[in-house]
Design a protein around this nucleic acid. Structure first.
Length: 425
RNA sequence: GGAGAGAUGGCAGAGUGGUUGAAUGCGGCGGUCUUGAAAACCGUUAAGGAUGUAAGUCCUUCCGGGGUUCGAAUCCCUGUCUCUCCGCCA
């Protein structure tokens, strides 16, 4: 959620920010509702002050034997007015809140302005030693490899649940588990994160806190009977760990890493990109979440990207980093880098991670604050998160990049102590 | 799933209709004392909002919502959550 005060004081910045994010210009509407709201508050406060004064006097009047009937009658009417005004005020505040909740975050000034993903900017790329985009043998795609080596069974996954629910078998399952464990261990040992294993069904408040709801509601699974949502990313439960809390400044930054399965309905995306692992309803992801002081959040974002990159370099997977343009930024993000890994069979880059700074947008929604030691006042933290990383797309790149001309897979060195095998054949 | 108990400030815990935003204790912060520290003592210590250049003034908030009343932490209804016991269960 954007800060109402900021909108009031910087309407033109917000207006331009919304336009850059391909979002409707609701600034004037917000300002006029806000004005209406403040006028009402003025009126009710006046009446309430009057009522409070009378409430203090009535007992004293009674003690001294004065007739309180006229005061009581007057206060009755004051109270009725307050009730009416409070109803009006409530309606207006609901209206304002509703618009604000549907209004996206605006981009940071360092983000390139652009309409679509076409205008994202590649900030750097990393390729393993001796890497070549052209292979001198016919590369198999991950689906063919999965079938040939009996490590992925998309048909049976479909039988069990439906399309988009992959079944990993034999060494494929082990490799997946190895990858998750390796990534967690790496972040714990080298990057100073603290491990969490969060609930994967969350309530509505949590989904609102991180901004998946209300805008993305259609893409979320929902268990009606219990009012719970299977999480689309561990960002949701992990960020909500500190919902409605005031953190100590000296504890910041707080850095969590956690594994979870992720569930996405991907409504309306059938056909396109839907084969194999490219777009699935359930996948595994190791997620990094940070709670930081506002002035450090953009530095922390850069570090977050490097934390994810380290893993890819250790795995020897070619990747590039994209700085998303304003139009491609998600609802809650102020700045975001995507990390894409190379798929030789698809002959293109696949998004394997997304690292975002939400500034105070999520913190304001989820009411996550810290006490500023200098001012003694609570302030909103900045939240960030990044995949570190999602295994499904990464698995595509690992399988395809590590295949031999005979169609076997050489397990990346760093994973071998987790898999206890070096080759899949 | 059945039965019962409860939800108050950073925490613990009083408070059953009228200066109660809330006793007391702990914790935090500032000070006195001390070579330093501890102890002791004194003081201080909620959040949000409106208004104002500011100092300040005012309003709201004792789990959420509704009601009774001139007035609610306190009474009534309702929702949510937590805890205890029983049942079931990986």
């Amino acid at each position: 959620m954007l800060d109402m005060k900021f909108i009031r004081e910087n309407p033109e910045i917000v207006r331009q920010g919304l336009l850059n994010k391909n979002s409707a210009d609701v600034v004037d509407e917000i300002l006029s509702i806000d004005e209406e709201r403040r006028a009402l508050i003025l009126k009710t406060d006046e009446l309430k002050a009057k009522r409070n004064q009378a409430s203090a006097q009535i007992p004293m009047m009674k003690k001294s034997g004065q007739d309180t009937a006229p005061v009581l009658a007057e206060m009755k009417s004051v109270s009725d007015q307050i009730t009416q005004l409070d109803i009006q005020l409530r309606e207006i505040e609901d209206k304002l809140e509703d618009i604000l909740r549907h209004t996206p975050n605006i981009a940071h000034s360092s983000v390139p302005v652009g309409k679509t993903a076409e205008e994202n900017v590649e900030s750097r790329r990393w390729l393993p030693n001796g890497f070549n985009f052209q292979n001198d043998f016919k590369v198999l795609d991950h689906i063919e490899l999965g079938k040939k080596l009996k490590i992925l069974d998309f048909e049976r996954g479909t039988k069990i649940s439906g399309s988009g629910f992959p079944l990993y078998t034999a060494k494929g399952a082990t490799l997946e588990r190895a990858l998750i464990n390796y990534m967690l261990d790496y972040h714990l040992q080298h990057h100073g994160y603290s491990e969490v294993m969060p609930p994967i069904l969350v309530n509505r408040k949590s989904m609102e806190g991180t901004g998946q709801i209300p805008k993305m509601e259609e893409d979320m699974y929902f268990i009606e009977k219990d009012g719970l949502y299977p999480i689309p990313t561990a960002e949701v439960p992990i960020t909500n760990i500190h919902r409605d809390e005031i953190l100590n400044e000296k504890d910041l930054p707080i850095k969590y890493v956690g594994y979870s399965p992720c569930f996405r309905r991907e409504a309306g995306s059938y056909g396109k990109e839907s084969k194999g692992f490219l777009r699935v309803h359930q996948f595994n992801k190791v997620e990094m979440v940070k709670f930081v002081k506002p002035e450090t959040s953009f530095d922390e974002l850069e570090k977050l990207v490097v934390d994810a990159e380290d893993i890819l370099q250790a795995l020897n997977v070619p990747y590039r980093i994209l700085l998303l343009c304003t139009g491609d930024l998600s609802f809650s993000a102020a700045k975001c880098y995507d990390i894409e890994t190379w798929s030789p069979a698809e002959n293109r880059w696949l998004e394997a991670s997304s690292c975002s700074n939400f500034e105070a947008f999520q913190a304001r929604r989820a009411n996550i604050r810290f006490r500023n030691e200098a001012t003694k006042k609570p302030e909103f933290v900045h939240t960030l998160n990044g995949s570190g990383l999602a295994t499904s797309r990464l698995m595509v790149s690992i399988l395809e990049n590590c295949q031999t001309p005979e169609g076997k897979i050489i397990v990346p060195k760093v994973l071998q102590k987790y898999t206890r095998f070096e080759i899949i054949d």
